[in-house]
Nucleic acid binder design. Structure first.
Lengths: 212, 212
DNA sequence: TCGCAAGATGAAGGTAATCTCAACTTCACT
DNA sequence: AGTGAAGTTGAGATTACCTTCATCTTGCGA
């Protein structure tokens, strides 16, 4: 559950463009909850390609209900995976924050945590490394994650640990590459590639400049 | 069932288990050729997921003919893409051989050439970086490519340019990773990641050992 | 308890692909 | 030219998914 984190001075109206729908009936609310749970479970086990049929069955409802409650596959995906991804990203941030040492070490810890989460949870992996253009909330989580990494990277560069010509989108590519190796089922290789990339990213005398 | 060969006066049969089919009729031979060409063109333009319908239309025959001549999608794929991949791998080998300098430089040239070919030809990319388990001839080409790279890598390690704990399967992963970034359409990023990986692969004082 | 709007259902329709096979066409040999 | 085997054809079977909608069911206010 997203914690809004603000101790606001007065009441602020909810969201400006809230469509002001009538409240859901009790059974419908129950079904939404069951579907959310079922979708999260199924996605986390089988990835985001899980058929709606599977999710509906797991929730004990029919596929039609998914459409009644969420409108489309993409909407379900965006809503459910958003929460899931948000949780993972926050956990990784906590790990980075809890890492004593240099910004470089925090950066390594953060990227390592995200990559491990990709390996552990197919849904999360699909979410941050694959393209889901119709999932805006999901994109927001990814951006948030990258922004955090960017901050750490800036610190690491200042320290002189991260090479000067490293760019922020390089980090995004770590996740992309890691996700691909996860999908290939090559966990050992994944770790090696990650290690190689970090080695490449370190500032060093006599390193060749990166292209671009 | 061994064939007791000594009754056979002169000719030894070519391949032991050649099914000895009757020769194809002229029109069928023509169709095989048209299909090979069409498949190579279509695969190279759209990747190995091109539907058979597209290929059949391009060749001016019906899908049924593909099955009559090749037996299955995978068989067509194996046969056609094998040739295509073999050509690319040989070209890359020639580039490596034509590169003056150290084994490390040859290795970089070879891997770079393969990766560039992946970027230029979707069929080749799918062939060496994706899994096509039902394509044995294709797998052979990949193995051949890796064996060549392995030779160069051994030389580069002897020179002291390649880190001691680099392994041969690391090179295979370069192709996998590169292929993924090609598919993502991120050519600039692809080059940067490749550069980072090579930086990571260089022998250096004070580098961390790779996991595994 | 009743009525009805909200909600659930799942078969049917749509799409996009591989693969099959009975009916037709053509080659090549006499 | 005639004939039969070889070859081609393409609609249909099949699979696997998403999405819709007419019909049935149910929560809940009166």
């Amino acid at each position: 559950m997203p914690n809004d984190g603000f101790l606001n001075s007065g009441e602020v109206s909810t969201v400006p463009e809230a469509p002001q729908r009538p409240p859901l009936r009790a059974d419908a609310r129950r079904n939404v909850e069951k579907l959310r749970q079922a979708a999260a479970d199924a996605f986390s086990e089988h990835g985001l390609d899980t058929p709606l049929e599977t999710i509906a069955k797991l929730a004990g409802v029919s596929v039609g209900t998914i459409y009644n409650r969420f409108g489309s596959r993409d909407a379900l995906l965006d809503e459910v995976v958003n929460e899931l991804a948000d949780r993972q990203v926050r956990a990784a941030m906590a790990i980075a924050d809890g890492t004593a040492g240099s910004a470089w070490e925090k950066l390594v810890a953060y990227v390592g945590a995200i990559c491990q989460a990709q390996a552990d949870d197919p849904a999360f992996n699909d979410a941050i490394s694959r393209r889901y253009p119709n999932a805006p909330a999901l994109k927001a989580v990814c951006d948030q994650s990258l922004a955090f990494a960017t901050g750490l990277a800036a610190g690491a560069r200042t320290e002189g640990a991260l090479r000067e010509d490293a760019r922020m989108d390089d980090i995004a590519r770590f996740f992309q590459v890691n996700g691909d190796l996860v999908r290939a089922g090559d966990d050992a290789g994944r770790r090696r590639v990650l290690a190689l990339l970090f080695e490449g990213l370190r500032a060093r005398a006599g390193s060749h400049p990166l292209p671009g």
